[in-house]
């Protein structure tokens, strides 16, 4: 997949049309303007907020939490998923627990995390790790468990032991599943970081959005929302870029050709 290869022109046009409708309605009605300040004003205040560095601190705080939480959960969930998928008994022991915890909305754990960790960064990171772990874990387990048995037998007839089969056959075979889990969790990480910041305050984009709303600075609130939207979009693009590089490496490294 080439993330920057083509631009969806009709899609961009309909987004622009929506923004145009927003702009015109905001300018034509005072009531609407109260709730939806014109998008041009929102963009201007976004630029101002960035130039005055007011938003930069919040942005960096959120990004830091996002990356630490996301990468930690990726490391934990992939490792755990491979082991649980590969060793049947380990999975049997943990299946009920996983199926019980997984469907629970992760935001319900925010109070627990506050109780245990207070309202600092570690709490936000912990909640993010918790939430992001499930999709990655489940997909990795699926990828490893659903591996074609003939592939395992192929490794065995070529004289490979259990760990070598894991490394040389199971892992590459499950790779596409793992990537799917990682992609799902990307959005979840952003949700959890923003939500936690709204709850515990202090700094970060989530805090900024809620704080501006409470201060009746609606335009600034929208500026924060737009920034989060851009952030989500950018992170997704970044993921696709890394994914295509990883896929190429994955093939190149294992195939040398």
């Amino acid at each position: 997949m080439k993330p920057f290869a083509r631009i969806n022109l009709p899609g961009v046009l309909s987004l622009l049309a929506l923004l145009l409708v927003w702009e015109i309605s905001a300018r034509s009605s005072k009531v609407i303007h109260l709730y939806f300040p014109a998008i041009s004003e929102v963009v201007r205040s976004l630029v101002d907020l960035i130039q005055s560095r007011e938003l930069v601190g919040h942005l960096l705080a959120s990004l830091g939490r996002f990356f630490i939480g996301y990468l930690l959960s990726a490391g934990i969930a992939v490792t755990l998923g491979i082991l649980l998928g590969y060793f049947r008994r380990a999975y049997t022991f943990s299946e009920v627990l996983i199926e019980f915890l997984r469907p629970m909305p992760s935001v319900a754990m925010i109070p627990v995390a506050i109780l245990l960790l207070g309202i600092g960064n570690s709490m936000i990171v912990a909640v993010t790790v918790y939430a992001c772990t499930w999709p990655i874990l489940i997909n990795t387990i699926d990828g490893v468990k659903n591996i074609e048995p003939t592939l395992i037998d192929t490794g065995r007839t070529f004289g490979l032991g259990r760990w070598k089969i894991l490394k040389r056959i199971v892992l590459p075979a499950a790779f596409p599943y793992i990537v799917t889990g990682l992609r799902v969790s990307l959005a979840i990480a952003l949700i959890l970081v923003t939500t936690s910041e709204m709850v515990v305050g202090g700094n970060g984009l989530g805090f900024f959005i809620l704080d501006e709303e409470r201060s009746l600075k609606t335009t600034n609130m929208y500026a924060g929302i737009v920034l989060v939207a851009i952030l989500g979009y950018g992170l997704n693009r970044l993921f696709l870029l890394v994914e295509s590089k990883a896929m190429a490496w994955h093939r190149g490294a294992t195939a040398r050709g």
Partner: peptide
């Protein structure tokens, strides 16, 4: 001793090229 499976399409490594698949036989040795 090596077994060539009946379901060869399931036994080949989809993430490796033809050369990579054949190299696997040499790598494990």
């Amino acid at each position: 001793l090596v077994l060539v499976f009946q379901e060869f399409n399931k036994s080949l490594f989809a993430w490796r090229s033809v050369l990579g698949n054949v190299l696997f036989g040499l790598e494990v040795r």
